[in-house]
Design a protein around this nucleic acid. Structure first.
Lengths: 114, 114
DNA sequence: CGACCATAGCTAGGTTTGCTACCTATCAAA
DNA sequence: TTTGATAGGTAGCAAACCTAGCTATGGTCG
């Protein structure tokens, strides 16, 4: 259950949206998909996952519906049209962001010191 | 002065450390180096830069010293040995993080929904 | 001269976000 | 029967970045 020491800061939402891209999932399944899909790197506590899903739903990017399976209640989420748009925008933005950071970290030399 | 809508979340520190890697700079020069080195993407407000440098100094990763150039006071920062270690660790961690996020965003299909 | 901008530093306060630490509940396995 | 995995949740803390404001110098332009 230990996470990778909160390194996701602003990038959790896009991962959650991506986890819902190829079909609806319930919250716990999203958590497991994230953990397995990242080779255990993003093993997030439920106290991170559920509030984040609530935020995304509140923002209209996903919608949830209740069901019951084997006596356990589940809330299954799917992307809204707005959520799909946001996912595409965020994914493209991620690539730009990652490229910029990587470029700066590899940079040698940096722009001249005045 | 408008930043790229707060997209650096947890990754500012490593960029600041990297900006000091090949020699000391004063705070404003760090800000400019970040802006120029990122093609304008990371044009951060001083209200982000200065507190962050204070945090890094507080944490013992950089040390600052005052000087005066043309009647303007400057605080010039350099990496400490600890700061160099941290930079190397964070840089390596960034690569793993970026690879993991990118992999998840490209992933098709995701681990099976239970 | 006066206005303005770039340079150079700073802080207070707010919001967001992820985490810790709890809680309820069912079902399967030990 | 008691633990662990599954499934959901909340309250409240702490960190981090931003907004908005401040002081001050030096150069440039009308």
């Amino acid at each position: 259950m230990k996470a990778e020491a909160q390194a996701l800061k602003g990038h959790l939402d896009v991962l959650l949206l991506a986890a819902l891209e190829d079909g609806p999932r319930h919250g716990y399944a999203v958590k497991e998909a994230l953990r397995e899909g990242s080779g255990g790197r993003f093993d997030l506590p439920t106290g991170t996952i559920y509030p984040a899903l609530h935020r995304l739903e509140q923002a209209g990017l996903i919608t949830g519906s209740w069901s019951t399976v084997d006596g356990r209640r589940r809330r299954t989420y799917r992307l809204t049209a707005e959520g799909v748009r946001r996912l595409h925008a965020d994914r493209s933005n991620w690539h730009g962001f990652a490229a910029a950071v990587t470029a700066l970290l590899e940079r040698q030399p940096w722009p001249a010191t005045s």
